[in-house]
């Protein structure tokens, strides 16, 4: 059986498997480092074949894509994931589902209320959508900062510790973990940050309305069952749940993740355990929750 699955490597690399075979092969990939390596190198081969076919797109296509992207929320990052976690690449992306090949909105999670890091004015020629100065915003409120609670100060220290211990180990891309560290520090040190206990090991949620974000950090978080991850949800006043990032404890049980989201209209932040890669809507009971 295993040998048989192994032989699907070539057809998989050129997209010549049906759905069932592809799923079988992707399960095999999780366990076969040799095949993963071949898939990556064959991916370069087929990419070269594709690039040789390049055709200049019409000018309007660019505007159409930018316009559509501006209205399309991005999926939240999968935080602290394992090398083979969920939707790491096309390999496990639900793109190959037959029957709805055309529509983005056939994706299971495309209809969810906007997620973290939504876009504003992306197609705007003035290009003010990306404002690096926003990052320095909390520093402009030094006066307010002095009044922040000891609890938050403690949380900041915890954040530093967690970054040092957990993050560097679990992320391949040091740029990403640095970015995460900065983001979490920004939230924890925001003038209006407040911390709440989350019943998931020794975990806190630090919320900042001003930063439009919250961070989760802690220690002693139990490892979920194999193939499962924690996922954050923003519980809205009307009862809907906005999908947040998934996260996994590090080896020592440290967790750290964050989500940029407008907290207006949100009444709670909850955690569920979901299959790797996360879900568009919760598939299990909330195991921990804090009211906002």
């Amino acid at each position: 059986m295993n040998e048989d699955v192994h032989s699907l490597l070539g057809p998989y690399a050129v997209g010549a498997l049906d759905d069932a075979e592809r799923e079988a092969f992707e399960r095999h990939l999780d366990a076969c480092a040799d095949c993963r390596e071949d898939v990556a190198s064959f991916g370069e081969v087929t990419a070269s074949l594709a690039e040789a076919e390049a055709v200049a797109p019409p000018v309007e296509l660019r505007a159409r894509v930018m316009d559509a992207a501006a209205r399309t929320p991005q999926l939240p990052p999968i935080v602290g994931d394992l090398p083979d976690a969920g939707e790491a690449g096309p390999r496990l992306a639900p793109l190959g589902r037959q029957g709805h090949p055309s529509a983005l909105d056939s994706q299971p999670d495309a209809s969810v209320t906007p997620l973290s890091r939504p876009v504003r004015g992306m197609a705007d020629e003035t290009s003010d959508a990306v404002d690096p100065n926003q990052e320095s915003r909390p520093r402009e409120h030094a006066r307010a900062r002095r009044s922040r609670s000891l609890l938050v100060a403690a949380a900041s220290v915890l954040a530093l510790a967690a970054v040092g211990l957990g993050w560097g180990l679990s992320q391949d891309d040091p740029g990403d973990s640095l970015a995460m560290e900065r983001e979490v520090m920004m939230i924890a040190s925001a003038p209006d940050a407040h911390s709440m206990d989350l019943d998931l090991g020794s975990t806190h949620i630090v919320v900042s309305d001003r930063m439009e974000a919250f961070a989760v950090m802690g220690t002693s978080t139990p490892m979920p069952d194999k193939g499962m991850e924690y996922q954050l949800w923003l519980v809205m006043e009307d009862g809907t749940k906005v999908a947040g990032p998934t996260f996994m404890p590090g080896d020592d049980g440290e967790v750290m993740t964050m989500m940029h989201v407008d907290l207006a209209g949100a009444m709670a932040i909850g955690v569920t355990i979901e299959p790797e890669g996360g879900s568009a809507a919760p598939t299990s009971e909330v195991i921990a929750e804090v009211a906002l």
Binding site: G15, R36, V39, A40, G43, E44, T46, A47, A50, E51, V65, A68, A69, T72, P73, Q74, L75, P76, P77, I78, P83, G86, E87, A88, G89, P90, R91, A93, L95, G96, L104, A110, D172, D173
Partner: peptide
């Protein structure tokens, strides 16, 4: 291309290059 925007956070360099990731999505 919109899908690339939407799913960009799921790109995992350890599984292959961005060029391969994008063109695999396109091919599929």
């Amino acid at each position: 291309l919109v899908e690339v925007w939407r799913r960009a956070s799921r790109f995992d360099r350890s599984q292959g290059t961005a060029r391969s990731w994008i063109l695999t999505i396109a091919h599929r």
